Computed example of a mutant assay.
Amino acid sequence: MKRLTKFAAVLAALSLLASASAHAEGRIRIAEQFGVVYLLLNVAQDGKLIEKHGKRQGVDIDVDWIKLSGGAATNDALLSNSVDVVGAGLGPLLTVWDRTAGKQNVRAVASLGSFPYYLISTNPAVKSIADFGPKDRIALPAVTVSVQARILQMAAARQWGQAQFRKLDPLTQALPHPDATAAVIAGKTEINAHFANPPFQEQELAGNPNAKIVLDSYQVLGGPSSATVLYATEKWVKENPKTYRAFLDALVEAAELASTNPEAAADAYLRVNKNSIDRALLIKVIKNPKVQFSVAPQNTLGLAQFLHQVGAIRKKPESWRDYFFAHPALAKGS
């Protein structure tokens, strides 16, 4: 009997050890997309800042970087537990925050900064969104759910009334930013417009003489806004406090570098992305006075409440804190 009791105790101990190992800290899988809006992640990857801050927390962190395109793809990866943290637009965040309430409880862990997103058109007849016709095709990362799609809906609601917020949806087409940029610059496909992000929008303006800005996201959102964010499940945040803290500390350091040393940040971007973009153009994008690097969100509630008003999300957010995890680095958010 004593031997059986000891055996049971050993089994229980092994079970506890296996459970602890399953939730052991020291690994983070990050899904990012394309563009300078992910610069803080690029700086962190290039300088191994997550690993550095992990050691300060007493944990060795193994970081996996995954490249995806579109909020739908990132949300699927997160909810299938293929990744731990995803970078995507505010639109996809709000969609998954709404749908996982009371379940995975997905919320944002940080902003990646504030950047103006430009809707570019090469159609000479298009001067504003009111001029788009049935033959125009607007490329964006994901139809309906991407932050570009949501901002376009917000603009449409102001132009034609809230009931017509989807008026331009039939003209949109999902396409990764690099592919859309190549199509706009070449001017040989049906894609004659692109709701982009930096540096792709700047490349289009420089690469096609017919390219022009039809809409600036800041105009729609009422000023600088954190359109791209990082988010995770409540389970991962709670079970990995040291890794989570190291990740945020790394982002804060990356934001400081991007703000004070644009040249070094640009070089990090080029090394990580192995991109052929002109370095001078890239630095110009990073130095744009409209661009702000901060992990604290800025001016996000307007879009969130609009999505509730039109029925795109069921839960009504009363504050940006509803869809962000609490962290000292985010204290000055909005």
Rank of each mutant, 00 (worst) to 15 (best):
A254E: 04
D267R: 13
L251R: 07
Y218E: 00
N273Q: 15
D216W: 01
L221D: 00
L270K: 13
F200R: 02
K212P: 04
A232I: 04
G207C: 06
L230C: 05
W236H: 03
R271H: 08
A232P: 04
L205C: 08
V229Q: 03
R245Y: 11
L215N: 02
E234N: 11
Y269N: 06
P209T: 11
P209K: 14
L257M: 15
A258E: 04
N240T: 10
Q201D: 15
V214S: 02
D216C: 05
N275C: 14
E263R: 02
V272C: 06
W236S: 05
S225Q: 03
K274A: 13
S217C: 00
L215A: 02
K235Q: 15
Y231E: 12
F200W: 11
E256Q: 15
A264Y: 00
A266M: 03
P224F: 07
I213T: 11
T260V: 11
V214C: 05
I213K: 03
P224E: 11
N208I: 12
N210E: 14
K242Q: 15
R271M: 02
A255Q: 08
A246R: 00
D278R: 11
N273F: 12
Q219W: 12
Q201K: 10
A264V: 02
D216S: 05
Y244M: 12
A246D: 07
Q219G: 07
Y231F: 15
P241I: 09
Y231P: 10
A211L: 01
K242P: 01
G222A: 08
A268H: 03
L270P: 05
V214L: 06
A227E: 15
A266Y: 01
A206M: 12
V252F: 12
E239L: 14
A264T: 08
T228Q: 13
Q201E: 14
A232W: 10
K235T: 14
N240K: 13
N210C: 08
F247Y: 13
A268G: 08
R245C: 01
A264I: 00
N261H: 12
A264D: 02
G223W: 04
P209W: 12
Y244N: 11
N275G: 10
T260K: 15
F247L: 07
W236M: 07
P224N: 13
A206E: 13
A266L: 06
G223A: 08
T228H: 14
T228M: 12
A246P: 04
A246Y: 02
A254W: 00
L270N: 09
D249L: 02
Q203N: 05
T260C: 04
F247P: 06
A250H: 04
V272N: 11
A232S: 14
K235C: 01
D267A: 11
E263H: 00
K212F: 06
L251S: 09
E263V: 00
A254R: 01
D278V: 09
F247R: 01
Q203T: 04
S226Y: 00
N275S: 15
A258F: 03
I277N: 06
A268L: 02
E256R: 15
E204M: 15
L251Y: 04
A258G: 03
V214N: 06
V229G: 07
V220F: 00
L205S: 03
A206T: 07
